[in-house]
């Protein structure tokens, strides 16, 4: 708060002050959401407008895919083992039969874990990466230099990252699904002695699962780069500003993924699975 604001707040009545304090909480949130929507709508406007820097799109796809592949594989690999470990012991205790486990696990991977956990990991890896990159361009005035040369920063920087992210999030989600299913199968086979052929069971998969999987991957792929770019473009100050931007990117992106997951899971339940 600046000195003037402090003086202004001090002059209010207690009731007024309580109302004003609500603003302290909500105004920054609303400002940030509007700014994210602004960046998002501009990015979509420019995504359908020529010229698109296809070389840059390819390069960004390589960066996103290459930089996150090992990370996503490690995390989802361990997740697969954890999930089968936990559910295996419980299933043995309650149901006593592990034959249906593979089919259920595959369904759950499609609907929930593969796209969402991949997106959470991309929010940390790609989200912080984009925010740091664009943020340091802002604080070193490179973004101003772009604007002075009539290169719109959102068209020049955000659109290639958006297009690359949409494709690579889907690809990485597919990779994640295979890895998590593979490690889960490994644990089921070694710890619980479930036959590989029994575990690999697609009987419970429906079109709805594939649709929800694709919808989630698409939504996350769009949201993460836009939120991260907004955080980067809003950076100010020196290295401190870049630090704040990256923190903001990972928090906002993870939160957005969780909210989208909630909404899309609800939609999926109502339309396909109930």
């Amino acid at each position: 708060m600046t000195k003037h604001t402090q003086a202004y707040v001090a002059a209010l009545s207690p009731t007024q002050r309580r109302i004003a304090q609500l603003g302290v909480v909500f105004v920054p949130i609303v400002t940030q959401i509007t700014d994210i929507l602004r960046v998002g709508s501009l990015a979509f406007y420019y995504a359908f407008k020529k010229p698109i820097r296809w070389r840059e799109v390819l390069q960004q796809s390589f960066f996103i895919g290459n930089r996150s592949l090992a990370f996503v594989m490690i995390v989802l690999g361990f997740l697969g083992m954890i999930l089968i470990f936990q559910s295996g012991f419980q299933a043995k205790r309650i149901v006593g039969d592990l034959q249906g486990m593979g089919a259920l696990y595959l369904q759950l991977l499609f609907r929930e874990f593969a796209p969402t956990v991949t997106a959470l990991m991309l929010a940390t890896r790609v989200g912080t990466g984009i925010a740091a990159e664009i943020g340091s361009m802002v604080v070193t005035e490179q973004v101003d230099a772009l604007r002075m040369n009539n290169a719109e920063p959102i068209q020049y920087l955000v659109v290639p990252r958006l297009l690359a992210s949409i494709v690579m999030t889907f690809v990485l989600s597919c990779v994640a699904l295979c890895v998590a299913f593979g490690t889960g199968m490994f644990v089921a086979n070694t710890v619980f002695e479930v036959n590989v052929a029994t575990f690999y069971n697609t009987s419970l998969l429906e079109w709805g699962d594939l649709i929800i999987f694709s919808l989630k991957a698409l939504a996350y792929g769009i949201t993460i780069p836009i939120i991260a770019s907004q955080a980067g473009l809003a950076a100010f100050g020196g290295s401190e500003g870049v630090g704040t931007a990256t923190t903001m990117a990972v928090v906002n992106a993870s939160l957005a993924v969780t909210i989208l997951d909630f909404v899309l899971s609800g939609v999926g339940y109502i339309f396909f699975f109930s």
């Binding site: 361009m137 604080v139 070193t140 005035e141 490179q142 101003d144 230099a145 772009l146 002075m148």
Partner: peptide
């Protein structure tokens, strides 16, 4: 034409 304080060269 503008010359920026922090160079602003595209790295």
């Amino acid at each position: 034409g503008m010359l920026f304080q922090n160079y602003a060269l595209f790295d």
